[in-house]
């Protein structure tokens, strides 16, 4: 009788023990998926999302207003040849300084960090894409006659700065990470010279950085989202 009792008790304990072990194993396995671990983090995340949504809404409103402005301008300048000329020149200028979306043939350059195992290299910094690499690529593209350039859909305009910002690169004060997709509109054959032997892309490939160049006939480059305003540089009276 006592033996029966003992074995029942032992069996129940084994149930409990293995239940605990397996439950724990499953929990640990699943914890690799990043779940937020505390309440505060969740709240912060929710707040960020809220602000993002607000920002998107404002952006939409702004777009609507811009469209309306465009329409108004068109209807106002319809029957006046002088104003129509002015409108055309405004459009041209907007295109050139990056305030309107543009489309055309060009090249797409993609830069990715080296996939090498970083545990056995001397200097990790040699194997990642830096702000200066992007700057050099853009400089070469401009030299080759690129008319419009964007990096990860951030339009490069006259006031654009390309800076190192920790793990990422900041362009137009927006943070941009790898892979860097640099789009440039211009004569594709001319721009493709970036990939020439001894060129900058080849130089990057020496460090196992994945640099690729692709010609395309249809590239869309978005407009600059920020504000272009000069508060110090004034026009001369005579130039007006």
């Amino acid at each position: 009788m006592t033996k029966l009792k003992n074995s029942i008790v032992l069996g129940l304990m084994c149930v409990l023990l293995t239940f605990g072990i397996f439950l724990q194993m499953r929990t640990v396995e699943n914890s690799n998926v990043k779940v937020s671990q505390n309440y505060e983090e969740n709240n912060l995340r929710a707040e960020v999302l809220k602000f993002k949504e607000k920002y998107d809404n404002e952006q939409k409103l702004l777009e609507k207003a811009e469209n309306q402005l465009e329409k108004e301008r068109e209807s106002a300048t319809k029957n006046n040849s002088e104003l129509e000329d002015a409108e055309i020149s405004i459009k041209k200028a907007n295109k050139m300084i990056g305030l309107s979306e543009v489309k055309g043939p060009g090249v797409i350059v993609t830069l990715k960090d080296s996939q090498k195992n970083m545990a056995n290299v001397m200097n990790i910094a040699d194997f990642i894409v830096h702000d200066l690499d992007i700057l050099s690529v853009i400089n070469e593209l401009k030299n080759a006659g690129a008319e419009a350039i964007s990096i990860n859909d951030e339009r490069v305009v006259t006031t654009s700065a390309i800076l190192c910002d920790g793990n990422v690169v900041s362009i137009n004060k927006e943070k941009v990470g790898v892979p860097f997709v640099i789009k440039a509109i211009g004569l594709p054959e001319g721009l493709a010279a970036l990939d020439r032997p001894g060129g900058y892309l080849q130089y990057l490939r020496q460090y196992d950085i994945e640099a690729s160049l692709e010609k395309s006939n249809e590239i869309t480059i978005p407009k600059y989202n920020g504000k272009l305003e000069f508060s110090y540089a004034k026009s001369l009276e005579s130039s007006n």
Partner: peptide, 14 residues
């Protein structure tokens, strides 16, 4: 009893 208990516990735990 131990073996049955272990198997049962594993099934429930999974």
């Amino acid at each position: 009893a131990i073996i049955i208990g272990c198997v049962l516990g594993a099934i429930i735990g999974i």
